[in-house]
């Protein structure tokens, strides 16, 4: 049977890269004692795939992994077995048994389905660029920024190592600014939320240390994701800073938290 598992990644393990997360789950499935299908050959590998790689340093509560199991389990059995094999920083949130594809059709992997992702981005900085401005101004500016006809940004093309200008606007579906900052990510008792935010009572940033550590404000983003037009959330924030006149976006720091991933064409989205 084919299963799609949703999991969270937080804390120190956010520093583990995608390929190592893959290796981690391959071993975790074995520790969990789940009977997983293997490919043929001298070096068989598990039939397992991930929806979308998460960058190093980013936390998430919306990661998805597909796997093919050779025995029957209930979703709860799968979640419990995997959680018994997790280390701090990884939590399996749910499992869904995938329906068999219709006659003659190939199964669509989570990777091929992803089109949209939600992020909570907390902005930190090192030289007081944002912190000079009151929140009301930032909120006004954000509205202006968001309602531009086009939002051109320079994107590095990895393959050719060249820069190209793209318009973010068609890929930025929803965006809102909040005075809350991401406080912590991790399992919570008595609530289904996986992360907590901390409101900043007085939006005044005289305390420079606070700006660096806790962050200044957050932005909730719904952007295009997946193999076609994957938008990195920091790209949006950097564009906003430039819109405000920031010349050196290298001083900005972000704590990015991925909330969820979807398939479908915006606005008709289906959670993976």
């Amino acid at each position: 049977m084919n299963v799609r598992v949703r999991f969270a990644k937080y804390g120190a393990v956010k520093f583990i890269g995608h390929l190592d997360v893959l290796r981690y789950f391959q071993k975790a499935v074995r520790r969990a004692g789940l009977k997983i299908a293997y490919s043929q050959g001298f070096h068989p590998h598990q039939i397992m795939s991930f929806a979308s790689p998460l960058g190093v340093g980013i936390t998430s509560e919306g990661e998805y992994m597909d796997m093919e199991l050779t025995a029957e389990y209930t979703p709860k059995e799968i979640v419990d077995a995997l959680n018994s094999a997790m280390v701090e920083g990884f939590t399996v949130l749910s499992a869904r048994i995938l329906p068999e594809p219709e006659n003659g059709r190939k199964r669509e992997t989570a990777m091929s389905l992803v089109t949209v992702a939600d992020y909570l981005v907390t902005v930190k900085e090192t030289d007081g660029f944002f912190s000079k401005r009151p929140l009301s101004e930032l909120q006004e500016q954000w509205t202006c920024f968001y309602h531009q006809e086009s939002i051109p940004v320079i994107k590095l093309v990895k393959k050719s190592n060249t820069e190209t200008t793209i318009d973010l606007k068609p890929f930025l579906y929803e965006a809102s600014i909040t005075s809350e900052t991401l406080k912590k990510v991790g399992p919570r008792k008595n609530t289904k939320d996986f992360y907590t935010v901390e409101p900043i009572p007085e939006f005044s940033f005289d305390q420079e240390e606070d700006c660096k550590k806790k962050g200044l404000f957050s932005v909730l983003l719904r952007v295009s994701a997946g193999s076609a037009d994957n938008i990195k959330p920091e790209l949006v924030l950097e564009a906003f800073a430039k819109f405000l006149g920031c010349e050196n976006t290298d001083v900005l720091r972000f704590q990015i938290h991925r909330l969820n991933m979807y398939s479908g064409a915006y606005p008709l989205l289906v959670q993976l």
């Binding site: 340093g57 991790g186 806790k214």
Partner: peptide, 16 residues
Amino acid sequence: VTNYMQKLALTDEILM
């Protein structure tokens, strides 16, 4: 922000 559980000797900035 996210280092509250397992504490780390190095800051996010250094680790990144």
